[in-house]
């Protein structure tokens, strides 16, 4: 349970800058190959999670290119570690986060950015003082959704880092394991209840943040 929260938290914090960068590129830059990038970002959403997990296994395994790089340079391996579970969760959460953030960046009135420029703000300052705060509701909503998605991740995680108690046994994997043992209906029910509560809370919170963002537009408050 705590492990799930830790994995979900690390996954979202790690994925957030990447998701924001991707969302910004997709929202603002027109370049050839944009549709390919869009497709790649969305791939984990439509691919069977087992396939994503297997691809991660290939890439980050002892002989995979990314795995070899990590073990040569940093002497670490993600395989069968909670960090690997966080990576799988982050990749699975990325599409949802990019979608939410991209919508909020597209909703920022670019003419406000022009106004900031005429008042003496450099492009970077304009981004930090206008674009970023105005897209913040979407960023927070994306983070909450991504967190819920991370906690629920099962297929890619179990394929990539297996099912190790205390290391990679996240909430859904714990439920699955308990189901394998006869007479553990109470344990399953308890875990499932936790999962429902967490997911429901996340959806309500993300909806609340998105609504608050829209209100901010209307009455001029901001988070």
């Amino acid at each position: 349970m705590l492990l799930s929260l830790k994995i979900g938290g690390v996954a979202v914090l790690g994925a957030l800058p990447v998701a924001f960068l991707l969302a910004w590129i997709l929202a603002r830059i027109r370049f050839p190959g944009r549709f390919l990038l869009d497709g790649l970002v969305h791939l984990p959403l439509v691919l069977p999670p087992v396939v994503t997990g297997w691809l991660l296994l290939i890439a980050f395994g002892a002989h995979g290119p990314a795995g070899r790089f990590l073990s040569d340079v940093f002497g670490i391996s993600l395989l069968f570690r909670w960090t690997g579970a966080a990576l799988a969760a982050a990749i699975m959460a990325l599409p949802l986060m990019v979608r939410a953030i991209r919508l909020s960046i597209e909703a920022v009135d670019r003419r406000l950015e022009g106004a900031a420029r005429t008042l003496g703000a450099s492009p970077l300052r304009t981004f930090l003082t206008i674009t970023l705060p105005l897209s913040m509701p979407g960023v927070l909503a994306g983070a909450v959704l991504g967190f819920a998605r991370s906690i629920g991740e099962f297929g890619a995680t179990i394929t990539f880092v297996s099912n190790i108690p205390g290391e990679t046994r996240t909430l859904p994997i714990a439920i699955y394991s308990a189901l394998q043992i006869p007479g553990s209906e109470h344990a399953v029910a308890r875990l499932a209840l936790i999962a429902v509560a967490l997911s429901l809370g996340a959806v309500i919170l993300s909806e609340f943040l998105a609504r608050r963002g829209r209100n901010a537009e209307r009455i001029g408050h901001v988070l």
Partner: peptide, 22 residues
């Protein structure tokens, strides 16, 4: 010159105030 180096004051048709700032 980029806009921020031109030292112009631009009053837009739709005031264009920053909605997230007082």
């Amino acid at each position: 010159l980029p806009p921020e180096k031109r030292r112009i004051g631009y009053v837009f048709q739709d005031a264009r105030l920053f909605p997230h700032k007082r």
